[in-house]
Write a protein that binds this DNA or RNA. Structure first.
Length: 493
DNA sequence: TCTGGGGTCCTTGGGCGT
DNA sequence: TCTGACGCCCAAGGACCC
């Protein structure tokens, strides 16, 4: 805990949904929900307009649709969010060398290390400037929390939402926190929250009064100590710029439970390959292979195997995953499969041998890993793919016009992702397209052989909607456009 | 009503070498 | 040779976060 509130926490407001509203003028001021659109999808982000209907993150998509039937439902476009995020992180790094990203839309900044603020006035000025710079560069709003520790800066930005700034003066931490719900504290989720509630503890003040020993007794030593310190406003964790990844994993939830053992084996192999693709592109190898299985009843089990040395060989990971699967009973069906690798190392065992040999020959430098070859393979059913093109997710007509409905049908829409159907072009809701005549636009919905496109761009007024056949040769997927001006506001990645 | 994907960290319990 | 304490590694599960 430091004497001046010079730790800044930035939290972009409803990030994915805000990016979509900035990209698509017709959605501004409307309820926008971004997430998986498949039958088992959940909400990733809801715009503030959608939140008024009770829609929130992690809510099953089906429930969101019931609460907000007229919202715009879009699949995530991670490449765009990534590009916008990089722009924002660049602004943070201009403030200080000590920037700790927590996710695409959140980060801590140590303002003192950047010598931009040493007291409350300086910190507040830096925070306001940052918010203005982010708005100018991306057209998006972020909320800023300032305090003498990471935990309090995060609490402050949460309180400042949306589009605000809050500074907690050192010395006022305990009184500030006391009336707040224990759920405000990072690390207190539904389970711990309920645990504490049953013990009569609902506020941070009550947590502090309970005392260290009592909390340790209730939730265990590590967690109890941490909770007590947080309740007192104590947190001396530094802002850490570089964090090494500890594991890499991929998983798919299937639209329908898998029963066929052969199919399950095949999916595990596919996941193993994708996982290795990720592992390699991050420049890592790993020693422990983990198989994750979520069964029909949502019970989840993991099986792991530790190898003699680290590997990034797809064959080795595939075989290990297959061995682990053999020990798992899948009768009844599985809804999710995952493959992960932990115990990461920078080099494989083979590299070490190669390095030893090279050193013997007078070359002391180990071979660099090839950072290329991110998994280009399409994701499985229900998976969200970074390209935004999501096989297996049926995009459907959305929005007020419902332009697709009422047209003569081509029979029922083919169930997306069904095995053995002729490859039909898929138009995920929200994805970017370009028409030879009408220019750039985005998919508002598709189905019954038709795709509805709204032609507008970030700087334009709300555009018009037109409907085409899904196989219209003049219509094709395209790269996203920059959010602000022509200059790299975030598109184009 | 039905629960994503990618992570981190902690706890518990067993095996094993010293 | 047997036994207990200790520390470490590994496996599995669970809570939590965005």
């Amino acid at each position: 805990m430091r004497a001046a509130p010079t730790i800044l926490h930035l939290d972009m407001d409803a990030f994915y949904a805000s990016v979509e509203q900035a990209s698509k003028p017709s959605l501004r001021g409307k309820a926008v929900i971004v997430g998986g659109l498949g039958p088992r999808g959940v909400v990733a982000t809801a715009s503030y307009e959608a939140r008024r209907f009770g829609v929130h993150s992690a809510m099953p998509m089906a429930q969101a649709r019931r609460r907000c039937p007229n919202g715009a439902y879009l699949t995530p476009r991670f490449r765009v969010y990534q590009a916008v995020s990089e722009r924002v992180m660049g602004l943070l790094r201009a403030l200080s060398p000590l920037v700790e990203p927590l996710s695409l839309d959140e980060a801590f900044v140590d303002l003192e290390a950047g010598e931009v603020a040493f007291d409350s006035a300086g910190a507040r000025a830096a925070g306001e400037r940052l918010r203005a710079d982010i708005m100018a560069a991306t057209g998006l709003s972020g909320s800023v929390g300032l305090a003498g520790s990471k935990m309090l800066a995060k609490v402050a930005s949460e309180e400042a939402k949306p589009a605000g700034l809050l500074l907690i003066e050192p010395g006022t931490e305990r009184e500030h926190l006391a009336p707040m719900s224990v759920r405000t504290l990072p690390g207190v989720g539904p389970v711990t929250g309920e645990h504490l509630r049953r013990a009569g503890i609902t506020t941070v003040g009550e947590l502090a009064e309970a005392g260290e020993d009592e909390l340790i007794r209730m939730v265990g030593r590590s967690h109890g100590l941490g909770l007590y310190r947080m309740a007192l406003g104590l947190d001396d964790r530094p802002v850490v710029a570089e964090r090494d990844a500890k594991s890499v994993s991929v998983e798919d939830t299937f639209d329908v439970d898998l029963h066929d053992r052969v199919r399950i084996r095949g999916e595990v192999q596919r996941l193993a390959d994708r996982c290795v693709g990720r592992l390699r592109s991050s420049g890592h190898s790993g020693r422990t292979i983990v198989l994750k299985v979520r069964r029909y009843d949502f019970s989840t089990l993991t099986r792991s195997e530790t190898l003699r040395g680290p590997t990034d060989d797809p064959g080795v990971v595939r075989e290990a995953a297959a061995r682990l699967l053999e020990g798992v009973d899948t009768t009844g069906g599985v809804r999710l499969l995952g493959v992960g690798v932990t115990g990461l190392a920078d080099y494989t065992q083979e590299d070490l041998f190669a390095q030893a040999e090279a050193e013997g020959a007078g070359d002391a430098i180990g071979p660099p890993r090839d950072p290329a070859a991110e998994d280009a393979e399409p994701s499985g059913p229900g998976a969200v793919d970074v390209t935004g093109i999501t096989p297996g997710v049926a995009a459907e007509p959305e929005g007020a016009e419902g332009a697709v409905r009422g047209m003569e049908g081509d029979g029922d829409a083919v169930p997306a992702g069904a095995a053995g159907v002729a490859p039909e072009r898929l138009w995920p809701a929200g994805s970017d397209v370009r028409h030879a005549v009408y220019g750039p636009g985005w998919v508002q919905g598709s189905g019954v052989g038709r795709v509805t496109v709204r032609f507008e761009r970030p700087g334009s007024p709300p555009g018009r909607v037109r409907t085409f056949r899904v196989d219209d040769p003049e219509l094709e997927p395209s790269d996203p456009l920059p959010l602000v001006g022509g200059g790299g506001g975030g598109g184009g990645a």
